[in-house]
């Protein structure tokens, strides 16, 4: 089967182009593209990463023609609601707040989140200890919710892409950053850029904000959620998931 990969960089582009191209049988999937190793853009402009491979595998499993639509993170849910695409495969955690706007499939992976700071940093992860500390997170993530709720005195800085967060951590504009541990390892700590930085503190425990696992978001009431859950179970069972998983990670990131 044919899998079309359309890359539309800007929101505006997505809005104008997709409106006309929408055909009923093509499943349009919203993806990000700046969140390695889950999604990233190669030098030639194509998308790659765990989320991308999973999305394509699910399409194959469901026997649907798919189209990937690139969207910046903070417009992800609004664009889904506005029918720019039909599902989001972009490492989106299933949270109560988001469930007010969209429905989710069952999780397709679960990884904890942790802070990263300079090696040997000695902050206290308490509301007092983080007062005035410059903490960077991606705008519109569960981590924004966590830092705002738990450390209201911190100087929280919101970024458009995770890559910008890492860049500012390196320049020293940030004291700490918070994101998914696997994304942090492959996207930063295990790269040259991440030398001299390390995880700080343990896994963040905040189910209210962080939710329980990463799922595929669809519009409210869309039966697609059930179909996607079935497809996730199927690729878990037939080994496709494991193949993709092992391409990027040493451990099974599906979680318990």
């Amino acid at each position: 089967m044919k899998i079309r990969q359309t890359i539309i960089v800007s929101v505006v582009g997505a809005m104008t182009l997709m409106g006309g191209m929408a055909a009923a049988d093509i499943l349009r999937i919203g993806v990000e593209g700046a969140y390695p190793p889950f999604s990233q853009k190669e030098a030639d402009g194509t998308l790659s990463g765990f989320d991308i491979d999973i999305a394509l595998a699910l399409c194959e499993q469901m026997n649907r023609e798919c189209e990937l639509v690139e969207q910046e993170w903070d417009g992800m849910i609004p664009a889904l609601v506005a029918k720019k695409y039909d599902a989001i495969v972009a490492s989106m955690s299933i949270t109560e707040d988001r469930k007010k706007r969209v429905d989710f499939s069952e999780k397709y992976y679960f990884t904890p989140s942790r802070f990263i700071a300079k090696e040997g940093a000695t902050f206290a992860l308490t509301p007092e200890g983080t007062k005035g500390l410059k903490i960077g997170v991606l705008r519109g993530t569960t981590l924004q919710c966590h830092v705002e709720k738990t450390f209201p005195g911190a100087d929280l800085r919101l970024y458009n892409t995770q890559e910008d967060v890492f860049a500012d951590l390196v320049t020293g504009r940030l004291d700490m950053q918070l994101n998914n541990t696997l994304g942090a390892l492959d996207g930063f700590l295990n790269t040259d850029q991440g030398k001299g930085f390390a995880f700080f503190g343990g896994d963040v425990d905040d189910p209210d904000c962080l939710g329980d696992g990463t799922g595929i978001a669809v519009r409210k009431g869309d039966p697609l959620a059930g179909e996607l859950t079935a497809a996730i179970e199927a690729i878990r069972a037939d080994g496709t998931y494991a193949t993709i998983n092992n391409k990027y990670f040493d451990v099974d990131i599906y979680g318990k």
Binding site: D74, P78, D97, R98, G136, T141, R157, L158
Partner: peptide, 19 residues
Amino acid sequence: TLQDLLGVGRWLNGRYYLA
């Protein structure tokens, strides 16, 4: 990362997943 007027607007949209 500055929280100017648009920054606050984007913060609100991001925090509550609004359009």
